[in-house]
Design a protein around this nucleic acid. Structure first.
Length: 432
RNA sequence: GUGGGAGUAGCUCAGCUGGUAGAGUGCAUGGUUGUGGUCCAUGUGGUCGCGGGUUCGAGCCCCGUCUCCCACCCCA
């Protein structure tokens, strides 16, 4: 094979696109029901935006970005996550002036140079929401509820919500100091990178890849145990609201998310049946990001969810199984090229009501009907020399095998009559 | 970034101790003069991922490389 797709990318092939479209539809429905408006920032932005928003020291920024310089020497990067772009858009377009909560949703491709694995790709897709302008815990709970609602609407049953808090500007500095002290005590057991992190960004030691560091950190102090009163109250309020909505969750003291901008609430949703890459979505509060990016002080919360992973679970569990087949469509079989004008005229008329596919191949009628059957359409329309002469068409119901030749002007009427009455037997093959 | 498994027909896979590449499915044609799904017959199908090496001879052994899968880790 001469060309293959770049490592870690996927082709959305026709057999999977119907399911993809149904997920997209579920996302649109739920997001609309919760009052979120869709936005779509570009898939590349100034590298600096991501470095600033996500954090220079994070894995994502330091080694997973697809960065390039354009023809004028500017450094740009394919977006590794969605929040930074949305925040930039909000500030640049002055969307915060409206009062009330600004509720936004997005869906699109993200890029991270990572080692591919089941459920982990270099180009992957996320949908997510961002809610700006309100700092109270009720909004955090709403987002978790929205995420869970979407996953349930996609047909998932068992879900696990992990909840934590990374503190705020009141309690985090004190905790970081405490952590730094603890790290100093175990200096000899840390890798060189972590020894450096101890000075620059102690929180990042928690996502070190070295097994030795992992062991050493088992008993390091956790943010969750050192929250200030406000942060603790916030977390407990979120938990109470979730309990009230009958959303099962558990506290996760080890949760440290890979992006620097989070404050207070952080959460992830997992599917227990998924294996190593079990996180379907995650997010949290980011009360200072808008300000840090040059906007007015604005508290906010957001999350994103991985569509490929969701698709995997949906396929695996057979949820959303009913296929999107064009059971009401028609397949036009031409027995001679002379029927082409006739076919075009009929197709144009029928397409106002039903999907129509025309077979121009000149193959045998037998072969064309076989294809019609595979397409899963209800009707075949046969156009041969007799039909051309009489300006008629032969309509065949592929479910019952019944067929009738009639003037082309009466075709649509008969199709609609046949559609109104259920076919005698259930359809044999589901087609695609 | 680390470790393990795999790559053979469009698809799913078999291929012994190194000795002339197989099955199922799909596709095509026929059994049917202009009629699908089931069945039968016949046919079509290959850079054995790519590059190098060992050998009289490599799908099989060795080295390199690419890709996929699984796990660690991280996350979506």
């Amino acid at each position: 094979m001469k060309y293959q797709r770049p490592r870690g990318t996927n082709d959305l092939t026709p057999d999977r696109s119907p399911l993809w479209r149904r997920l997209r539809h579920v996302y649109e429905e739920v997001v609309t029901q919760f009052g979120y408006a869709e936005v779509d920032p570009p898939i590349f932005e100034a590298t600096e935006l991501f470095a600033r928003a996500v954090g220079e020291d994070t894995d994502v920024v330091s080694k997973e970005m697809y960065s390039f310089t354009d023809r004028k020497g500017r450094s740009l990067s394919l977006r590794p996550e969605g929040t930074a772009g949305v925040v930039r858009m909000v500030i640049e377009n002055g969307l915060l002036g409206g009062g009330g909560i600004l509720r936004l949703a997005y869906w699109g491709p993200m890029f991270r140079y990572d080692r591919p694995q089941a459920g982990r790709y270099r180009q992957f897709h996320q949908f997510g929401v961002e809610a700006l302008g309100e700092g109270g815990p009720a909004l955090d709970a709403e987002l978790i509820e929205l995420l869970v609602a979407t996953l349930r609407a996609a047909g998932l049953g068992e879900l696990r919500v992990d909840l934590g808090s990374v503190g705020d500007r009141c309690c985090r500095p004190a905790y970081v100091e405490r952590l730094r002290e603890a790290l100093t005590g175990m200096d000899d057991r840390l890798c060189p990178t972590c020894r450096e992190r101890r000075v620059t960004n102690p929180l990042r030691v928690f996502d070190c890849k070295e097994t030795g560091c992992h062991e050493a950190l088992k008993h390091a102090p956790r943010m969750l145990d050192h929250l200030c009163d406000d942060c603790r109250a916030h977390l407990e309020r979120v938990e109470a609201l979730l309990a009230d909505q009958a959303i099962p969750f558990r506290r996760d003291r080890d949760m440290v998310r890979g992006l620097d901008y989070y404050t207070r609430t952080v959460f992830e949703v997992h599917d227990p049946g998924l294996g190593a890459q079990s996180a379907l979505g995650g997010g949290g509060r980011y009360d200072h990001l808008v300000e840090d990016c040059g906007g007015p002080p604005t508290p906010a919360v957001g999350f994103s969810a991985g569509i490929e992973r969701l698709l995997g679970v949906v396929e695996q569990e057979g949820a959303l199984a009913a296929s999107e087949r064009r059971s009401y469509g028609a397949y036009l079989s031409l027995m001679t090229p002379a029927a082409e004008p006739h076919a075009a005229r009929i197709a144009a008329r029928l397409r106002r009501a039903i999907p129509v596919e025309v077979d121009f191949t000149g193959r045998s009628l037998k072969a064309q009907l076989k294809t019609a059957n595979q397409r899963g359409v209800r009707f075949a329309i046969i156009l041969g020399p007799d039909e051309i002469d009489a300006r008629s068409a032969t309509l065949k119901d592929l479910d019952s095998g019944v067929q009738k030749t009639l003037p082309e002007s009466d075709l649509l009427e008969l199709i609609q009559a046949w559609l109104a009455s259920e076919p005698p037997a259930p359809r044999a093959a589901p087609g695609r």
